[in-house]
């Protein structure tokens, strides 16, 4: 993948030029300010939620916004007649989000350490964030290529949240029974939450192992059977079909 680094750099450059980083940065500052006002114990319970929000919700939104501009400007045609492969193009999109999530992790981690001397298991957190962001970048790409415009991407995003992220929250409040909620680990946000929480609390080993295997397999399946075919379909549409 000789062009991958070039594409990633260019993607960051464009995110900056299109002011998409600004929104991301504002949210990041908001988290840091919030951390300042929370007690250390509360903060430890709250930080996984920040990372969950950033690597899932912000990732889907950011990839949607990037692709929205690309779709609007039809730039994919020009890129696809260069030596860039489809794999490089899609991998670059995912990598940019991974780097972005890792920046958030670094900033929050440094901030909470200096503000409240809060630490957690960074070695467990980093692979979890990488995997969760990869899965949700792919989901974001898939949702975006199914959307006609950014509004419909937002609707797809809301549907995803309703269907996949809300049930575990309902279970937390006892709205959904335990007999049903034990299957929620099959929902990508719940499996993601398990992995992120390993850095903060003790979690049954089987749940962690299952979540890793499940999300890795899901990423591979999503890429091969959903994202790539949808990307090719989009490419066909862009070329005038």
């Amino acid at each position: 993948m000789p062009n991958l680094l070039t594409l990633v750099k260019a993607e960051f450059f464009r995110l900056n030029k299109y002011n998409l980083f600004t929104a991301n940065f504002v949210v990041l500052i908001m988290w840091v300010v919030l951390a300042y006002f929370l007690e250390a114990e509360m903060l430890l319970r709250f930080i996984p939620f920040i990372f969950f929000m950033d690597s899932i919700m912000m990732t889907i939104l950011l990839v949607g916004a990037t692709l929205f501009y690309e779709k609007k400007e039809h730039t994919i045609n020009s890129i696809m007649v260069t030596p860039v492969t489809e794999h490089e193009f899609l991998t670059a999109k995912v990598l940019v989000n991974v780097v972005n999530s890792l920046i958030t992790v670094a900033v929050i981690s440094i901030a909470v350490y200096f503000i409240k001397e809060v630490t957690f298991n960074y070695l467990l957190l980093l692979p979890a964030i990488v995997l969760v962001t990869v899965v949700h970048s792919l989901i974001g790409i898939r949702l975006s290529y199914s959307a006609k415009d950014f509004t419909s991407h937002l609707i797809n995003y809301m549907l995803y949240v309703f269907i996949f992220a809300l049930p575990p929250i309902f279970a937390l409040f006892g709205i959904i029974s335990e007999s049903v909620s034990r299957f929620f680990i099959l929902l990508p946000p719940e499996a993601s939450s398990v992995l992120i929480n390993t850095a903060f609390t003790q979690i049954e080993a089987w749940r962690v192992v299952f979540s890793y295997i499940y999300l890795i397999a899901l990423s591979a399946m999503l890429y091969m059977f959903s994202v790539k075919p949808k990307f090719n379909e989009y490419l066909m549409k862009e070329t005038g079909v």
Partner: peptide
């Protein structure tokens, strides 16, 4: 087709690097 928020030279630089 071009990236509208990039300058002409930035557009060409991007493609040149590929």
């Amino acid at each position: 087709i071009s990236f509208s928020k990039l300058t002409a030279i930035e557009n060409l630089d991007f493609f040149k690097r590929l």
